[in-house]
Design a protein around this nucleic acid. Structure first.
Lengths: 207, 207
DNA sequence: GGATAATACGAGCGATAGCTCGCATCGACT
DNA sequence: AGTCGATGCGAGCTATCGCTCGTATTATCC
């Protein structure tokens, strides 16, 4: 197999018809990844599920990995938007309220499409999407660091970089793990306690 | 392909010769996973790298997944041993010292073979090893919960289950992420600060 | 040394994967 | 209506994969 491991689209969809094709492909890919798993998600199957031929798939994506990478990118965009919105809203609020909002948002973001999220997380390493995801993390990290900077007066003296790393990583992990492995914690009554605890974790650490 | 997704070994190695074969296979699998990745780690390649024939591989493992699962299991045993040792040692020590030891141990455990660790973590979902890993997490969780129970007097009133979940998940994530994505934080001078911060995170939360 | 069980071998089978390419159809513009 | 690029099609090529099985080699025991 000659080296063509590109991840970027082969061409951009110009007309409405082709945009619909690409959308159908991404939609179908997400569906199949969830219902069949990565290994059974062959390009032929994806194309068939999208009501499209393999040939068309390869008009817009240079490889199977590229298709999955596109799905991941779209999902990431959705998640990131949630984070950005909340951080903007929280920017002017005091530390305890802001952190609480953030924690709640993290859970909310993970709830967008948990099953897809799980599959995507598992398959990220196989696709060229690792850098994308890393960039996503970097942005979250930077946004939260900026938030901390703005509220420095309310913190104990800290290394902002390290504090942001520890905070973001912890919140991400707790919410992520809860959503993926502990649905019991996320029942409508229990989720409040999880938010309380995670907020306390971060606040107790920061001040 | 008829359904035979077993993960347990096909037969146990009786003679020294065959035990050597199995060892060579596991060793080679680890090497290839690290250097080539899961997709290029075909059974033929693994066998060749082990200086053994595919036929021999299938004498001891019913499938490729089973080989990888065995590598994961071995790695998990190593990690778990570290955790158990430290928790035993920490059991009788006060909270702040005990937690600190645990955090240090978590970093130490992740350092056993980071590159292999990373690949294995990435490939766990594809193998039948998910339950094994879940069991591993459950044990860590239970051990730490027991530790908390023993030191309940030093804690604020907490739901032990929830507190153990939040603590273990956070420490795991911070150390894991640091080892895999932030080698800068783990330089010999910086690692102390990471331990300090993570310890503070957990202690501030627990009391 | 001969018999038997354990272990090792590796050519090759069947299946499926990713992907190409020559051709058909559609749609925007004149 | 006619042109031509954009889009869509899908049979089928090549590569590789996981895995089997008949055979060869080695160890063990009498």
């Amino acid at each position: 197999m000659p080296p063509r491991p590109l991840t970027s689209p082969r061409k951009i969809a110009a007309q409405a018809r082709s945009r619909a094709t690409v959308d159908a492909l991404l939609e179908a890919t997400a569906r199949i990844l969830v219902s069949e798993g990565f290994d059974r998600a062959s390009t032929n199957r994806i194309a068939a599920a999208a009501g499209v031929s393999v040939g068309s798939l390869y008009q817009y994506f240079p490889s199977k990995e590229a298709v999955v990478a596109a799905v991941i990118a779209r999902h990431n965009r959705d998640l990131m938007q949630v984070v950005r919105d909340v951080l903007e809203e929280a920017a002017s609020q005091p530390l305890d309220e802001g952190v609480r909002k953030l924690v709640a948002a993290a859970i909310e973001a993970h709830r967008i499409d948990p099953t897809l999220h799980r599959v995507l997380v598992e398959q990220i390493p196989r696709t060229g999407a690792l850098e994308d995801v890393e960039a996503f993390n970097q942005e979250t990290f930077a946004l939260f660091r900026a938030y901390l900077e703005r509220h420095r007066a309310e913190l104990r003296p800290v290394d902002l970089d390290l504090a942001a790393f520890v905070s973001v990583t912890s919140v991400e992990a707790v919410t992520h793990t809860a959503v993926l492995h502990r649905p019991d914690i996320l029942s409508d009554e229990a989720v409040g306690r999880l938010v309380d605890e995670t907020t306390r974790l971060v606040l107790g650490y920061l001040r």
